[in-house]
Write a protein that binds this DNA or RNA. Structure first.
Lengths: 346, 346
DNA sequence: TTGAAAGCGCTAACAT
DNA sequence: ATGTTAGCGCTTTCAA
């Protein structure tokens, strides 16, 4: 029970050599049917389990791909991960997950650990702290596929899969304007990750397009969390002119915003609130939360597909473009002001 | 750039042998300070990154532990995982995550994959489908540490870390009774995992203790999800006598219950609702959700500690007991009926 | 303190 | 269709 069965044990059992066993087990064609079956039977009998480490050491392929995300807890990332797994499993690839917890140091440690584990490639979404990409360049230097999704950075020249975040910001803002809101604030994050800037730019553009002024006091730059939402909303309630709608950087932040507004007696949709990411709970809270769907399942599937394309080429980075996914608006009760606004206009 | 640096390259560079390099790098004591520093400098210069695969193949230790959970998305499991990571990282262990997605087939595949990857041990929480534990026995047969946490099964004889789920069920029920609720229903899952039975037994025991009858029609056995909650609450609203409080198997299910009640005009705490697990959103929905805290951080820390104890022994299963963690009640608005109930009594 | 050498379990030329 | 053999990169005895 202590010693594990190896292909040597099977070979000995059957009076053949290890190469025969290896071939039989790996589906090599030029093997007699009888031998193959005997090997498979013996393997089962001896309770053989292959040592992928040895196989990987020899072949140089582990069939493991590393995935680095800020946190697995967000529905958005959980869905992406699930779809990456689905997209890769038929090709025999497995995933090993690493959470950066929004810390650059963790992210660096993650890349190092994954490379030492000899993964065949890495799919990553950056932490909010990431302002330097040297650790990612190491993956490229080893000529292994690296794909950055969602949270990308302009400085790194690898294939990316992103949402059209400018459009997402524009869409959220325009939706609020169409609902009759005029003083629209934005609670988002200060960090350097491109997507947050893009959304902010989309927001500004939509305001301009509709002849509304951008008020810098209505842009709160902090973190993204329930507490950051509470804090941001608290600040905005003291700002003049008081906003009549708030865009939150994600649904968790939006949840905090709503809570703060409720405690202040400004229950949405009196002040409109919209988030990003369509978390599991968003449809079920009260009021139900309007949000921008970022289509994480599409994003995960695109990651898997691109990875498979890259490993199939001898130069992974040849002829690989970027993928941009279009966001969708999900309007719900937290921004449904139309009736009221119309009656006001009457 | 194509070929990776190995300890052979470093050895050649310095005119020493690979054994010296290996010793210098691994902190072997009997090495001259000068040699060690030269090796470390050369390693840095040549951009050396160790191949853990080779090291693991030789030493038989990968320093990777496999963690199998139903889903990473629940705050409960995410917190456990985080605390396992924290508890193990100083000892050099890394985690590889596997999600069963509540499917037995996935769980079996997970164990197989992890064992083939030669993990040093496995920490697992069972899927709702798991009614057979043969796949777990294989880990024990290899004399590798296996720890089952939270979702355990009576048939398997390995160390466990669990919540006192009987107490949790009892506590939730007694809280509702004390708030003045008398017809308390339970929306939970039909599956064979022990903890759900324990909670149900705690519920029944609390009812008996307070001279309330157990009404089998008030026990809805389905799945655990927002939709299962909606469905369960819908059924209960048509049951006579109509329940005045509902215990939900987890906070997601409770969210569905609340939504259904709201649409039926029975907004909690008019009908009281309590969940399990204290999800991130639970404090922030309206009404805020009463719940049972299962102390996942304690549970994760206990997992890590137990694993380290097991690997430190030549027989991992010697002198290892079980850990039981006590739940805590978190009362919130969804069950705060006291004032109303008192005024009724007046 | 350092070197020489065997081998972890498997794969893949190269033979036959 | 099967056998022989040389490693993959590292650790670790044994020897010096």
């Amino acid at each position: 029970m202590k010693k594990k069965t190896t292909i040597y044990d099977i070979a000995q059992e059957l009076g053949v050599t290890v190469s025969t066993v290896s071939r039989a087990l790996s589906g090599f064609p030029a093997i007699s049917k009888a031998t193959r079956q005997a090997v498979i039977a013996a393997a089962a009998r001896l309770n053989y389990s292959p040592n992928k480490l040895a196989s990987a050491l020899k072949s140089g392929k582990t069939f493991i791909v590393g995935v680095i995300v800020p946190s697995v807890e967000a529905h958005f990332f959980a869905t992406i991960i699930h779809n990456i797994e689905e997209g890769l499993k038929d090709s025999g690839y497995r995933i090993i997950l690493f959470q950066s917890k929004e810390s650059l140091a963790n992210e660096i440690r993650g890349v190092k650990t994954l490379l030492e584990a000899q993964v065949d490639g890495i799919l990553a979404s950056m932490s909010l702290e990431t302002n330097d990409v040297a650790h990612f360049q190491e993956i490229v230097a080893q000529n292994k596929p690296l794909i950055i999704f969602d949270r990308v950075n302009q400085e790194i020249n690898v294939p990316t899969i992103t949402l059209n975040d400018f459009r997402a910001g524009y869409m959220a803002t325009e939706h609020l304007i169409k609902q009759g809101y005029r003083n629209i604030a934005f609670v988002t994050t200060t960090h350097q990750v491109k997507i947050f800037n893009d959304r902010l730019n989309g927001y500004k553009e939509a305001l301009k397009k509709h002849n509304l002024k951008v008020n810098e006091h209505h842009i709160i730059l902090g973190g993204l969390s329930i507490n950051d939402g509470r804090f941001g909303a608290g600040q905005l309630l003291q700002t003049l002119p008081k906003p009549d709608a708030i865009i939150a950087g994600d649904d968790f932040t939006a949840l905090g915003v709503i809570k703060e507004l409720q405690e202040a007696g400004e229950v949405p949709p009196k002040i409109g609130v919209i988030g990003f990411a369509n978390e599991t709970f968003s449809a079920y809270i009260t009021p139900s939360l309007s949000t921008i769907d970022q289509h994480p399942s599409q994003m995960g599937a695109a990651c898997a597909e691109m990875f498979l394309k890259m490993v199939s080429q001898q130069n992974p980075y040849e002829n690989i473009g970027n993928v941009v996914i279009e966001p969708t608006l999900i309007p719900r009760a937290s921004t449904t002001k139309l009736q009221e606004s119309e009656s006001l206009i009457d």
